[in-house]
């Protein structure tokens, strides 16, 4: 009971963990809150939780892509002493294979290119253009499987609210879990599922 209460998360915003981070539960246990990942981040995008994500997440690093997205420089993994962020080589194949921050998703109701107004800004912002995202007629974006969830697309979207969002990995996995669970255990406050259109 105490454990469950301790783990309650009040997710008021989607957040991403740094690239190469372990799965959420393991990450919280492994991170020693040394702040070195933010120190070394040349993009200044890593911030730290206070109490807003639960007491167990306090002091852990996170990224809000709409404010500042990750440029996949992969330095945080090099500096993390505990391996909470795994070191990953800054090359296309390792990044695509091992970085699992989340997956971008296009809201076609909001996206300008799907409304007949060619935009294509998210495609141009993507560091893995044509691998993680491609554009078609009138610059309409389609997210591909290789998307690692860095969030640069979300940051650059000129629509308000943004038409492309990164669904964080910890919500993706549990969304899959939720669809497979027939019934949910009562009192399991582990993760709140947030519905996206």
């Amino acid at each position: 009971m105490v454990k469950a209460a301790f783990k309650v998360r009040h997710i008021t915003q989607r957040y991403l963990r740094p690239p190469g981070a372990l799965k959420e539960k393991d990450f919280i246990g492994r991170c020693i809150r040394c702040n070195q990942c933010a120190e070394i981040c040349p993009n200044n995008c890593i911030k730290f939780f206070g109490s807003e994500n639960g007491a167990d997440s306090m002091g852990t690093p996170y990224i809000t892509p709409r404010e500042k997205a990750c440029i996949l420089c992969m330095k945080c993994g090099d500096v993390c002493p505990t391996g909470a962020i795994k070191p990953i080589k800054r090359e296309l194949e390792p990044i695509v294979q091992y970085v699992e921050m989340g997956k971008a998703r296009v809201d076609e109701q909001l996206c300008l290119s799907y409304q007949g107004k060619s935009c294509g800004v998210c495609y141009r912002a993507c560091p893995l253009a044509d691998t993680a995202i491609k554009v078609g007629y009138m610059e309409q974006p389609t997210v591909l499987d290789a998307c690692v969830g860095c969030g640069l697309c979300e940051r650059s979207c000129i629509q308000i609210p943004q038409a492309i969002k990164v669904i964080p990995n910890h919500l993706l996995a549990s969304q899959l879990k939720a669809t497979h669970l027939k019934e949910r255990r009562s009192g399991d406050n582990d993760v709140q599922i947030i519905k996206f259109k």
Partner: peptide, 22 residues
């Protein structure tokens, strides 16, 4: 990049040093 961190955990020229309590 060689100078990062605090006494809790840091790195000095590639050598990582961590507080044993951590």
């Amino acid at each position: 990049d060689a100078l990062k961190g605090t006494t809790w955990s840091g790195q000095l020229f590639g050598l990582k040093i961590t507080d044993p309590l951590a």
